[in-house]
Write a protein that binds this DNA or RNA. Structure first.
Length: 202
DNA sequence: ATGACGATTTACT
DNA sequence: GTAAATCGTCATA
């Protein structure tokens, strides 16, 4: 399959958030096994002007450093003391914007994803729809953590994006982002995108 | 050095 | 619908 290019990523976050729907996120584990999922839900974070973004007001700390770097790299953070979430960095230096990947439709490596996701509920009981239907779920299923923060999605070999099926504009639904009630006016803006009626959306 | 908090998930009432 | 889990990060002192 064909990789997405640097140019593909170096666009405004809203444009990228829509363009990422239908593309395929690939994770190659240390033992060589390939896990993959089709992106079905995203959110755009608009950088220094966006109260919900980690770079709001120009905040630049060790945690958010990769958001300040070039487009097409991963920004992976840890929150609530137990979860990781993955973003695709948009635009480029000076514009610390990104797209949160909120849900995938698993397409390769589901058995391995089950072992990663298994907890109180045994792996055998987890259905495909339980594997990647949320930002922290997909990070756990795909084996993503701070060790992959900053990874180059265009040239890297552990985590990257491949061209998927084309998505029609009329199949994209937008709405408010999730879990950012503290962000005032920004909490209401329609910066969440997903494929209409898709069963793997969070 | 300390304390408040979070781009979530899961279990329980 | 409500709440607990759980800790790195960052602003404040």
């Amino acid at each position: 399959m064909r990789r997405l290019t640097r140019r593909f990523h170096a666009r405004e976050p809203v444009t990228l958030a829509r363009a990422l729907l239908g593309q395929v996120l690939v994770r190659v584990l240390d033992d060589g096994e390939r896990l993959a999922g089709r992106i079905v839900e995203t959110e755009a974070y608009l950088g220094v002007i966006d109260r919900a973004a980690h770079t709001y007001g120009g905040r630049r700390t060790p945690r958010t450093e990769s958001m300040w770097g070039p487009a097409g790299h991963a920004y992976i953070y840890f929150l609530y003391g137990m979860h990781h979430c993955m973003n695709v960095v948009a635009q480029g230096p000076g514009h610390p914007t990104a797209v949160l990947i909120r849900a995938l439709e698993p397409v390769e490596g589901m058995a391995r994803m089950r072992t990663h996701r298994a907890g109180r509920i045994p792996a055998a009981r987890l259905r495909d729809v339980d594997l990647c239907s949320g930002p922290a779920k997909l990070a756990q299923a795909m084996g993503l953590d701070r060790g992959l923060d900053g990874a180059d999605l265009v040239d890297g070999d552990q985590l990257f994006l491949e061209r998927g099926r084309r998505v029609r504009a009329e199949d994209i639904v937008s709405g408010p982002r999730i879990g950012i009630a503290y962000a005032g006016d920004w909490a209401l803006k329609p910066l969440r995108f997903h494929l209409r009626g898709h069963p793997h959306v969070s």
